[in-house]
């Protein structure tokens, strides 16, 4: 029972993320991506990173995925509008990815960090602990990220605004 849950959820995340890139219909891709993010939330809960689990659930599955779905519906895309890529490119892409994963895993095998992951401090990922960290040593980056979000908001509004001349 102990570690089986991790392997089950890991298999699910790999299957769903494969479905994301191989689904023909972009809407199905978004829905599979939501499932993938849900499995990631489960991973965070297993690591007892409860703050990140909640943030991942709300920000990724709530906000970002709704934005994706909204844009897909707005542009009215379905599988008929999906441009076909030649099978050669697909095969080359899959081979390149396979080489990447073999290289990554092969090079990390020599590092062999096989020590089991055990939470030493139960409070590590809780809101209280992370809040103290966030508003202590990481206060400046935290405030700067608000500036980043403001800039992104202004940029998004400016970019998607229609030209006055056109309207």
């Amino acid at each position: 029972m102990s570690t089986q849950v991790f392997y089950f959820v890991a298999t699910l995340s790999i299957i769903f993320s494969l479905m994301v890139i191989f689904a023909k219909n972009p809407i199905h891709s978004v829905l599979y991506l939501i499932l993938t993010f849900f499995t990631f939330t489960v991973h965070y809960v297993l690591l007892n990173a409860q703050f990140l689990a909640v943030v991942n659930f709300i920000v990724y599955m709530g906000a970002i995925m709704v934005l994706f779905l909204f844009v897909l519906m707005l542009l009215n895309l379905n599988k008929d509008t999906e441009p076909a890529k030649s099978p050669l490119i697909k095969i080359i892409g899959v081979i390149a990815g396979g080489c990447l994963v073999v290289t990554l895993i092969g090079s990390l095998k020599s590092a062999s960090i096989t020590s089991p992951l055990i939470l030493k401090n139960q409070e590590l990922g809780l809101v209280e602990n992370l809040g103290k960290e966030l508003f202590g040593p990481f206060l400046l980056p935290f405030e700067l990220s608000s500036l980043l979000l403001l800039a992104a908001m202004v940029g998004a509004v400016l970019l998607s605004k229609r030209d006055e001349v056109e309207a």
Binding site: K109, T114, S115
Partner: peptide
Amino acid sequence: LQGVPLNHYIWLSAIIFTIGVIGVLT
């Protein structure tokens, strides 16, 4: 639920990262 070896997390992340790379390429 803990006790999963750290390198299994590394493998999982490497595989999912690669799936993302394949998606960008294809």
